[in-house]
Design a binder for these strands. Structure first.
Lengths: 198, 198
DNA sequence: GCCCCATCCTGACAGTGTAAAGATAAATGA
DNA sequence: TCATTTATCTTTACACTGTCAGGATGGGGC
């Protein structure tokens, strides 16, 4: 291995990775571009060529984060019994991502630093929204039901990311999943009367 | 009036006011202590004496913001017909505050800059939580119901603060209130069978 | 083999938060 | 009343930040 070649090879990916680590360490408000560069082992001005400015880096990271967010939901939805179960699993995935990567979650949903008009970013956000609408559509719900599932999932996730909901944190993993599932089911549209059981 | 006395008179309050304006203008991530001082017409180091550092100022502002947040809920709850109505009104007040002062809302709920261990801040937050628990208590609900109302209110509010929920923004004020009321009612515990009407 | 240019570095500048030390005026106490 | 203490505010300085301009390096196209 060359000890320190002038050209990095894949600096763009390395910077994104370093930026994510930096974000997790110092939080989104303590984020430093120079520190990211140092972490990646390059000069402080190196990121400029790949991302323009700090906003460019954070925008690229946010777009990547959005796609991973959606991937987390998709993974959870796999193996769902029906449309309602899939919606509940999506909500649990929403929370799972927020808890696992709180700062990345906040970068995507509660920060003004990324440029949301950026095509890549915009497309990732739209795809997630279309997916959510599809979930509700599959159980015959409407716009209000979309808002209901989104708000409940997002509220739980954001409070969890900020470690505000201590009552839930005290539960065991199994108990928490059960309670959260119950909360999510509350907001789903009533079961279709045709297929209603019991 | 003296054109520029050496002593301000009530610099602490003036700085808090300037900080809130600064927050609204440049956002929480673009917040600058020197800019706040300039806005208040004093030197850049003047805030240090009253608040220690930037975190001190933002902590004081967050505590004040938390009390105003609770006041907004209280105002909305006044004149409620019953416990359920009061809970719904509290949720609408939650959103009202988030929409009216998005950056202050984010400072309180989604920022790491304020010191949440600060006694004044901690008490303001605890008071708001006790109030929420009281709302649910009055209708015979439990911890899960507290989480439900909080998560739904917070989710709606945070999405609104970030202008993420466009479908609701398109509605008229009356329509929006009706939809939001419906969403909040979904998460409340079932009506007590004893007093259940119709 | 030569040149172009993408890539990365060095140096500079304005702006940031914070600490130290000085200036001012209000409050205190005799 | 007047000297002294104390609270308040300013000035100065330093390390750090993001961004820009210009220079160094070396891989790829011809």
């Amino acid at each position: 291995m060359a000890s320190k070649p002038y050209h990095h090879g894949d600096l763009r990916a390395a910077l994104l990775s370093a930026a994510e680590a930096e974000l997790a360490d110092r939080g989104i408000e303590g984020f430093s571009l120079r520190s990211v560069a140092k972490r990646a082992g390059v000069s402080h001005a190196a990121p400029a060529h790949h991302f323009g400015d700090a906003q460019g880096l954070l925008t690229a990271l946010a777009a990547e984060g959005f796609r991973r967010f959606q991937a987390t939901l998709d993974a959870r939805e796999a193996g769902a019994a029906d449309a309602r179960d899939r919606a509940v699993r999506a909500g649990l995935g929403y929370m799972e991502f927020a808890v696992a990567r709180p700062t990345l979650f906040r970068l995507i949903f509660s920060s003004k630093k990324p440029d949301f008009a950026d095509p890549e970013m915009h497309e990732a956000a739209e795809a997630a929204y279309r997916h959510l609408v599809g979930l509700i559509d599959d159980m015959g719900g409407g716009l209000a039901d979309v808002a209901a599932l989104w708000a409940m999932s997002h509220g739980l996730a954001d409070l969890a990311a900020g470690q505000r909901m201590r009552s839930l944190a005290a539960l065991s993993e199994a108990e928490r999943q059960a309670v959260l599932g119950d909360l999510l089911r509350r907001v789903l549209p009533p079961v279709s009367p045709v297929a209603g059981s019991a």
